[in-house]
């Protein structure tokens, strides 16, 4: 065992950052898979949302783990940034960072902060109203009108309603651009941190770039689709 303890060494911190990143990237894929159904079928989206919103394991086991993962990733990101800034007390008068590294890799904290701001907006838009409906008002039915079983599920309607205002759609699209920039470095960086650098790395890099572009682009497509088809 490390003298410093597993969680206090620099390598342990980057490994924990990578593990939380893998978890969040998997969650993002799952979130996208559900959201994209809203483009093809409102009913399917409703059924999936109802399942996710009422399933015990997802609500009381997976959701707390997700919240913990998100909080951990951000807190550890800030800790690393503060420690790293402290490792160079006097900055260079001239520094040509673009000569040897990508903008994305040098600005993870800023793309991360943009994503954090988006998550706050996203929670205000969807998660907090959902908690209010289910746990404050006690309505677990998922129906548009809880008193009328024929009124249908409410999730697709709520989703469309959120993408009416162009400012919100613009904010979502911009946030997904930052998410793409964050993932362009983060995806492969997570593998490197876990010690994976071998003959498959080149292929993995290409896959990571595709993931970093396609998933956020897909989310942008969903937002624009509902904005223009409401």
């Amino acid at each position: 065992m490390s003298k410093q303890g597993l969680l206090s060494s620099s390598i342990a911190r980057k490994v924990s950052m990578a593990l939380s990143a893998f978890f969040l990237m998997f969650f993002l894929l799952q979130h996208f898979a559900i959201n994209i159904t809203s483009v093809f079928s409102g009913d399917t989206f409703n059924e999936l949302s109802q399942f996710m919103g009422t399933n015990f394991v997802i609500q009381y086991v997976m959701q707390p783990i997700l919240i913990l993962g998100v909080v951990f990733h951000f807190v550890m990101g800030f800790i690393l940034e503060i420690k790293n800034r402290g490792a160079r007390d006097v900055q260079y008068a001239k520094n040509n960072g673009s000569a040897n590294s990508s903008w994305m890799s040098r600005n993870m904290i800023y793309s991360g902060l943009a994503i954090l701001a988006f998550i706050v907006l996203h929670f205000i838009d969807f998660w907090i109203p959902e908690l209010n409906t289910k746990f404050v008002q006690g309505d677990m039915s998922g129906l548009i009108d809880p008193a009328n079983a024929e009124s249908g599920l409410r999730y697709f309607e709520e989703l469309q309603h959120k993408f009416v205002h162009p400012a919100r759609v613009g904010a979502y699209c911009l946030a997904f651009v930052f998410l793409a920039l964050h993932l362009m470095h983060g995806f492969n960086s997570a593998f490197q941190s876990m010690g994976a650098n071998n003959k498959y790395t080149k292929g993995l890099k290409n896959f990571g770039t595709a993931y970093a572009i396609l998933i956020p682009a897909g989310f942008i497509f969903i937002a624009l689709f509902h904005h223009f088809n409401h």
């Binding site: 003298k3 980057k14 490792a87 590294s101 960086s189």
Partner: peptide, 21 residues
């Protein structure tokens, strides 16, 4: 690694600048 951390160096964030330079 223990000594490296004690010396006050920062954490690697895999920018790759070191390899280039």
């Amino acid at each position: 690694v223990d000594q490296m951390d004690k010396e006050g160096f920062g954490n690697c964030t895999n920018t790759g600048a070191c390899e280039v330079e």
